[in-house]
Write a protein that binds this DNA or RNA. Structure first.
Lengths: 298, 298
DNA sequence: ATACGGCTCTTCATTTCTGTAGAGCAACAC
DNA sequence: GTGTTGCTCTACAGAAATGAAGAGCCGTAT
């Protein structure tokens, strides 16, 4: 029972011999001398109190016990590899990669980034604007600012920023020509623009299809900015985020916020990234300031 | 990037220093000299190219990097512990623990066990008879012979033995006094015995309640053997396994096998146990012979 | 039949690691 | 103030692990 492995590295040796089939080949793999490898296996066998290999003039052949332990030994190796990877990430840290819909990188938000960078000159930030949902868990980004209607994966760190609300908007130009609807029951006869793209959630587009006739949809865009611009130029009515356009006096809201389109506005951080001290610092600095932007000023 | 950890044991040292807060305390924990511990940390820091501790006249204090690596380092430690545990299990193997319903340990089955034990004198078998479902994944047993109507957990090794069929049986004594029903439509006026217990599936008991009136149930047992004996002594009709009673000329089947009670007869082996060579050997020996017992002899 | 390649062992000098001992520093109790 | 405790270092001698070299075994190709 008192079979403690005194030298963890011996497991590496074990794996090398198991895979190569001989201590000589293993020694080349490990950059050691052959007797060293043989001795280490001997020591390991002694510690575990198990014969691991049958010696033979043409090599070391794993016993049933060795086969039984292989998977677990490989788990140790994998854990070591993880550690090395993580350490090398810490040693030469890449920038903190932040993904968000382009409009989230507004002047007021950029100001927060700048303040942080000023206070932490060593830390670089990288921005990945776009509608596409990058996979934080796969390491495609470190932090995401997202509007989502589904609960986020459990293994992401998550801070709630606000609840985003949506409504139909039209520009004053449009209003002058066609007037604006008063409510959602009054949409007949109006024109609409929409946003639709394969790799992005279609919730808003679907909502529109449910409430207006297909022929009312004047234009469909695959870039959100283009749709936004189209609404501004008076080409039709469209769904926009209340906070996003609250500064834009040219756009007029045509209805109450559409509750079924409301989304959680979250700041998501991958667990892996959150281990990095800079990412922690950044989060601590950024989250409250960013949240404050979305607080209703009374 | 070329930051390979040359000595895996250094991670143990790292954890000890992290936990104890000083190289001196860590050295006591590890049974090493204090300078050795300090040197190993130095080496590790050099390999990882990361400062892990801030030195101070009253101890080693972890840096942010050390904190970031802690969880992963502990994963390595856990993997090592697993390996040690598994090895110590292989070194001093306990018996192969086999759980099954008591009647499964019939003379014909015991004969197979005996043949195996004769051929493998070093391997001990332990029998855990009972209706209760022991949890193989928790290590309560190594092998289970089971009748089940639900698919088994994916991480058990599973061999199908047969499909068990059930029907109503009555003894000749009972038959002489009250006659026997011809089919399931003919159950009125007969008495029944049943088996019911908290920790065991109630499928058969429920079936009976669905097909006969409550007052027809003469007796309810919490031991399967007692119910079996009650049927044999003519106290009532009851549901029994066809294979179990095929040798018993005193019992008469009253209906066709009840399809909705059919169950998969499985041999289940925990993955953990299956790593042990003896368990593999036993399975290879036992499974085909056991299966043969349930083949219909034409 | 012989030579070669690939392997395991053993031996021994050498490198590397480890432990002991002691100096020095800071915090704390008295 | 002084003594004590707990810690980090450095220096050096002894212990342990390592590598180089060589003997020997076996299967195979020539």
């Amino acid at each position: 029972m008192k079979s403690r492995i005194s030298n963890w590295t011996d497991i590496q040796t074990f794996l090398a011999v198991y895979r190569e089939g001989s201590t000589l080949a293993a020694s080349r793999l490990l950059g050691l001398a052959q007797p060293t490898v043989a001795r280490r296996i001997e020591i390991l066998e002694h510690h575990l109190n198990l014969p691991l290999f049958e010696r033979d003039t043409r090599g070391f052949h794993p016993t049933g016990h060795a086969r039984a332990l292989l998977a677990t030994a490989e788990a140790v190796e994998a854990a070591i590899t993880d550690l090395e990877k993580e350490a090398s990430g810490l040693a030469s840290p890449g920038p903190i990669r932040i993904t968000a819909y382009s409009a989230n990188f507004s002047p007021r938000v950029k100001k927060i980034f700048n303040e942080f960078t000023t206070g932490h000159p060593g830390v670089r930030l990288e921005f990945l604007p776009g509608m596409k949902m990058l996979d934080l868990e796969k390491g495609e980004a470190d932090i995401a600012l997202r509007l989502t209607r589904t609960p986020p994966p459990a293994d992401l760190i998550c801070r709630k920023i606000s609840t985003a609300q949506y409504a139909l908007f039209g520009s004053r130009t449009y209003s002058a020509k066609h007037g604006l609807p008063d409510s959602l029951d009054d949409l007949a006869g109006h024109s609409f623009v929409t946003f639709e793209r394969e790799d992005v959630s279609k919730v808003m587009h679907s909502w529109l299809l449910d409430h207006v006739a297909p022929e009312q949809i004047a234009l469909s865009f695959s870039e959100f900015e283009l749709m936004h611009a189209a609404i501004q130029s008076g080409m039709g009515l469209g769904i926009l985020n209340l906070k996003l356009v609250e500064q834009d006096t040219d756009l007029v809201r045509c209805c109450d916020p559409i509750e079924e389109l409301s989304a959680e506005h979250l700041m998501l951080i991958s667990k892996q990234a959150y281990k990095r001290p800079e990412v922690r610092q950044f989060t601590k600095f950024f989250a409250p300031r960013y949240t404050a932007l979305f607080k209703d000023e009374t």
